[in-house]
């Protein structure tokens, strides 16, 4: 069955995420736009995922606990998990590897942890935009150890992408899919990086504001719309090195 998806969204916990991006608002907006499955992927944390999952359960939309990890090379990677426990274990691990720099809300924005009814229940004190200590060559293995899957985010962007920061994507990184923005010139990218030929491309919104969440447009073919079905689908894709 085809399901409409968006596996890359931010909540008010991301410093650059709008404070209106509460778990409640985000998930309800996604439902209004006709999406079947979304992932909440704040920078370097999964602490708003449990609330978003609860909202999703109450209105019938699947919310995958996820994270947009910033590797030590400042490459963004979308990480997805099939249950909140694994996601939170990973989240705690990532935060423990980050430098002890405190957020300055007046510069970077607030980092609010909320419950499913828009109540602020905490704040993340560490600045979440910083790089973690996990390198691009270890990210797949590390995420797999926590039961998740991952793919490099917005590889067509000029910042925080594997291609902009490292100049290339290589098979030994261990990825099996990539994310591109809806504006990407796919043909040009594949010509310049032939390794991408035939590699599945996810197109997500990377929404930081409610108005940036996109209409249901991109679909994924799954047996059902559970988080597990998504994780299994990505797990079973051939790695880039197996395609060569």
């Amino acid at each position: 069955m085809q399901f409409y998806y968006d596996f890359h969204t931010h909540s008010c916990l991301s410093p650059c995420g709008d404070n209106d991006m509460t778990p409640y608002n985000l998930v309800n907006m996604a439902k209004l736009l006709g999406l079947d499955i979304i992932a909440l992927t704040d920078h370097n944390t999964c602490e708003n995922c449990a609330s978003a999952i609860k909202v999703g359960e109450s209105i019938g939309i699947t919310v995958i606990p996820g994270m947009e990890l910033c590797t030590s090379e400042e490459v963004h990677v979308v990480c997805l998990f099939d249950n909140i426990e694994n996601a939170m274990r990973f989240s705690d691990h990532v935060i423990s590897t980050m430098p002890p720099v405190k957020n300055r809300p007046e510069i970077f924005g607030e980092q609010l942890i909320m419950d499913e009814e828009d109540n602020v229940i905490g704040k993340q004190e560490k600045l979440l935009t910083l790089a973690s200590a996990i390198s691009i060559s270890d990210v797949c293995k590390t995420v797999e150890n926590y039961g998740g899957v991952c793919y490099p985010a917005h590889i067509d962007r000029s910042s925080y992408s594997v291609i902009s920061n490292l100049g290339m994507i290589t098979d030994d990184m261990g990825f099996s899919a990539v994310e591109m923005t809806s504006e990407a010139d796919r043909e040009a990218l594949i010509n310049m990086h032939p390794i991408l030929d035939g590699v599945p491309i996810f197109v997500d919104s990377d929404a930081h504001y409610l108005e940036n969440i996109k209409d249901a447009e991109n679909t994924i073919d799954l047996p059902d719309k559970s988080a597990k079905a998504v994780i299994d689908y990505i797990k079973n894709l051939p790695k880039m090195k197996e395609r060569i």
Partner: peptide, 8 residues
């Protein structure tokens, strides 16, 4: 150019 590096 690596912001985390510059910051510290």
């Amino acid at each position: 150019d690596l912001l985390s590096w510059v910051m510290s």
